[in-house]
Design a binder for these strands. Structure first.
Length: 568
RNA sequence: CGGAGUGUAGCGCAGUCUGGUAGCGCACCUGGUUUGGGACCAGGUGGUCGGGGGUUCGAAUCCCUCCACUCCGACCA
């Protein structure tokens, strides 16, 4: 491709609407243009990246035996009424009416359509298992689209749906998809992690989310440093202490802590680490007006875990600050577990403390040297907090650490939710009808493009992983106006690279070098070759990796060696 | 849906309080000089000032109303 024939259109200034790096850089590099909230036009440059992602996804899905098909984006309401989701789905479902007054929706997902297809297409268990997929544009009418294509309303998704005669077969395909997703993310050149996901109300046995790791990710992931365990922080369990509690060494001492309300203030006033204090939270109980939850000062309550506790009312509700003094005799900030006549539930870590500090249930006072069993009853214990770095991982996999991720894929064992609701049956081995089990497997194709940038950028712009870069190599001739041999040489290199099947763009725009370099660094082309009169005179070419600190001069006839060494 | 904010040229912004017929930087076009890290000079193109209504001799500016967009929250879960 010649740059003069390709719509390269970069921006020096960042549009005010873009909050996150990937959105800013995609706009500045000219990959995207917004049409309306959550709706984007992909430019030729942006589409090149999107297509490369699609191609890798398609190749791996095909390799895993999935069959590509294409379903309509617009779906009749009747199908959604059959599954019950026409009522359930809410305003996120974009509903349409055609000229005859029939209801439709723009598909946010395709379980209904594929199940309808399957019940008409599949007659016998002999046709199972089968795994259909498509790469389609979806629409979800997000309340608040943001972050460009990271959370757009219209987006490109690969979705696959498998059908099985039994659970074992579903499990096999699930594993196959898990492997395929791993291969896809590896091939994309991204750092990623598969995490255990909540199976939620839909049921099913297993679900994993695939996250691209990036500091800006919306989800916090707890993972085993020395193992393969990973889960959303909200899902990661914490465990009772394995060591016995140290013997009490201090006596209880009441300390005035005026103006110390938060744990930080209390810990500073008492000159103790926050991990030697506890905080006591009052929430509404199922059988009592309030339940006291005791957590170590440096830990945070996990509301999902708390809500699952039978003594705690759902949804989780904190006791109003104004109500606390009536119940306890002290305001929020001076509450502790001592002498309470409401149920006390301590997090495992809080229960493992000795000689800790807590509120005195007397405004402006805390008590140090408190010990379970000696000073107050052994509490009921539970897992109530978010996992933190250093916690033990499940299954003896060492310690956990925390990182952030962007969810780009999700694999799910659906079971028979849709096949049963929509009466999808095939004849089994014994001649009797069976309801196939289903799995579904999604990848956010357009989101991957944004996630790749969130993981790979610097102050100059995007640093594409080679497998998805719009071009692998850019050739920048310098001083072509002074020396005709520069352009001749650039052209011949261009022809050579193309002959080798390397995606190359030749910058024939005749710009000043600084401006040209800035453009290609913003756009993020992984490898750059500079042809200049100076270099030609010395028999050299200048090359540079996008992720390198400096230029490299190589012998002109060594270009292919250099490329071979740096092509992914 | 609640709260806050913003709509002026492709992008970033000033002008609005105090009404007088629209401006700056970047980008773009022409010519010239330049050419190794976002060049310079000169001359240009481009705006129903988000839409509609009102007040006024006169509205980007004041009033009413609608719309769009952004942020926070709620909802989705």
């Amino acid at each position: 491709m010649r740059a003069s024939h390709f719509a390269i259109n970069t921006m020096k200034e960042t549009p005010a609407e873009a909050e996150i790096v990937s959105h800013q850089l995609m706009l500045r590099a000219g990959m995207l243009k917004k049409l309306a909230s959550g709706l984007y036009t992909w430019s030729p440059l942006g589409l090149k990246v999107l297509r490369r992602v699609e191609t890798i996804v398609r190749e791996e899905m095909d390799a895993a035996g999935a069959l590509e098909l294409l379903m309509p984006a617009v779906q009749p309401a009747e199908l959604w009424e059959e599954s019950g989701r026409w009522q359930q789905y809410g305003p996120e479902l974009l509903r349409l009416t055609d000229r005859h007054g029939r209801d439709f929706c723009f598909g946010p997902t395709h379980e209904e359509v594929i199940t309808d297809y399957a019940r008409r297409e599949l007659k016998s268990y002999r046709q199972l298992p089968v795994n259909f997929y498509q790469i389609q544009t979806k629409f979800r009418d997000e309340i608040r689209p943001r972050f460009g294509v990271m959370r757009a309303r219209e987006f490109v998704m690969k979705d696959a749906y498998s059908f099985h005669a039994d659970a074992e077969s579903l499990e096999q395909t699930y594993q196959l998809m898990y492997t395929a997703y791993s291969r896809i993310l590896d091939r994309l050149g991204l750092a990623w992690r598969a995490v255990v996901a909540d199976t939620g109300s839909i049921g099913g046995n297993a679900s994993h989310e695939f996250h691209v790791l990036a500091d800006s990710g919306e989800d916090a992931i707890a993972y085993a440093v020395d193992g393969d365990y990973a889960a959303n922080v909200e899902m990661a369990p914490t465990f009772p202490a394995t060591q016995p509690r140290p013997e009490p060494a201090e006596t209880m001492t009441e300390v005035a802590t005026p103006n110390a309300r938060t744990i930080e203030e209390v810990a500073a006033t008492l000159d103790l680490p926050a991990s030697r204090t506890v905080k006591t939270l009052l929430v509404t109980g199922t059988e009592s007006t309030a339940v006291a939850l005791v957590l170590r000062g440096d830990h945070s309550l996990n509301e999902i875990k708390a809500t699952k506790h039978p003594a705690i009312a759902e949804p989780l509700t904190f006791v109003d600050e104004a109500e606390a003094p009536k119940l306890i005799g002290a305001s929020v900030g001076s509450i502790g577990p001592l002498g309470l006549d409401i149920p006390v539930i301590a997090d495992h870590a809080a229960a493992a403390l000795s000689d800790f500090a807590c509120g005195a249930n007397k405004n402006g006072y805390h008590i140090t040297g408190v010990n379970w069993a000696r000073d107050l009853p052994e509490p009921e214990t539970a897992d109530l907090r978010d996992a933190v770095a250093g916690d033990p991982a499940p299954d003896n996999q060492g310690k956990l650490d925390i990182c952030r991720g962007i969810e780009v894929g999700h694999v799910f064992q659906l079971g028979d939710k849709y096949s049963r609701a929509m009466n999808c049956e095939v004849l089994g081995e014994d001649g009797k009808p069976i309801t196939p089990l289903m799995g579904c497997y999604g990848i956010g194709v357009s989101r991957i493009v944004a996630a790749a940038i969130e993981q790979n950028f610097d102050e100059r712009g995007i640093r594409w992983p080679q497998p998805i870069a719009p071009f692998t190599v850019v050739i920048v001739p310098i001083g072509a106006n002074k020396d005709a041999s520069v352009m001749e040489r650039a052209e011949s290199i261009y022809a050579d690279l193309r002959a080798r099947g390397i995606e190359t763009i030749l910058d024939d725009r005749g710009m000043r070098p600084g401006a040209a370099f800035a453009d290609w660094e913003l756009i993020g082309i992984p490898l750059r070759v500079v042809v200049s009169p100076r270099g030609l005179a010395a028999g050299q070419l200048e090359v540079r990796r996008r992720d390198a600190e400096a230029n490299e001069d190589i012998a002109a006839d060594g270009l292919f060696d250099w490329l071979d060494a740096h092509l992914a």
